[in-house]
């Protein structure tokens, strides 16, 4: 990633930019869709952010955290759009779309029955939108709690609490099976 950014900044390398785009666009698109719920608009918003990054490429190395930068840009751009075209004033994290986030145990990494897999997926899907978004940003996109806090403009403590809640819900749904696994461990 660092190498790509170097090439973009110092060599105006469009191929590097394309690679950078392909690596990052999907998660940002999913993020934008949570706020905007329209595929075409979400794409426009994300592309607008990438375009502005390209225009500012000479100063890329001054960006403290490129990941945070991208997510915050997407969120702010989406918020601008909503404010302009909607009666709703601000993004309400409790009312975002989160059905398009799928998280599921990777059967290649953990020995698990199809049934248990379904239970886990279902339990994640039932998380409240904000909780699910935070869980997704940490587990799937690999952001840290403090990065998530900065991006969503909520406190670090809230992120931590929401993550713990997600784990509690997951654990509750798994508890009957956990006992079984405990038995199997012996």
């Amino acid at each position: 990633m660092q190498l790509l950014l170097h090439r973009i900044q110092f060599e105006q390398d469009e191929t590097a930019f394309r690679e950078f785009y392909k690596e990052n666009v999907f998660k940002l698109f999913q993020f934008a869709f949570a706020f905007i719920q329209n595929k075409e608009l979400a794409e426009e918003i994300v592309n607008d952010v990438f375009l502005s990054l390209w225009n500012q490429r000479a100063r890329i190395s001054d960006i403290r955290n490129i990941n945070v930068y991208l997510y915050v840009s997407v969120k702010n751009t989406a918020a601008n759009y909503i404010r302009k075209n909607n009666s709703r004033k601000n993004i309400d994290l409790e009312r975002i779309a989160s059905d398009h986030f799928y998280l599921s145990p990777d059967p290649e990494q953990v020995l698990i029955t199809e049934e248990l897999k379904k239970i886990i997926e279902q339990s994640i899907n039932q998380l409240p939108p904000r909780c699910k978004l935070i869980f997704k940003l940490v587990k799937e996109d690999g952001l840290s709690s403090s990065e998530v806090a900065e991006i969503l403009e909520i406190s670090y403590k809230t992120v931590k609490t929401q993550l713990t809640i997600a784990l509690q819900k997951l654990e509750q749904s798994l508890r009957p099976s956990l006992k079984e696994y405990r038995f199997r461990l012996r």
């Binding site: 986030f101 998280l103 599921s104 145990p105 953990v110 698990i112 886990i120 997704k136 799937e140």
Partner: peptide
């Protein structure tokens, strides 16, 4: 382990 293996589609 389950938690660790979670991935997005």
């Amino acid at each position: 382990e389950v938690l660790h293996s979670l991935k997005g589609s």
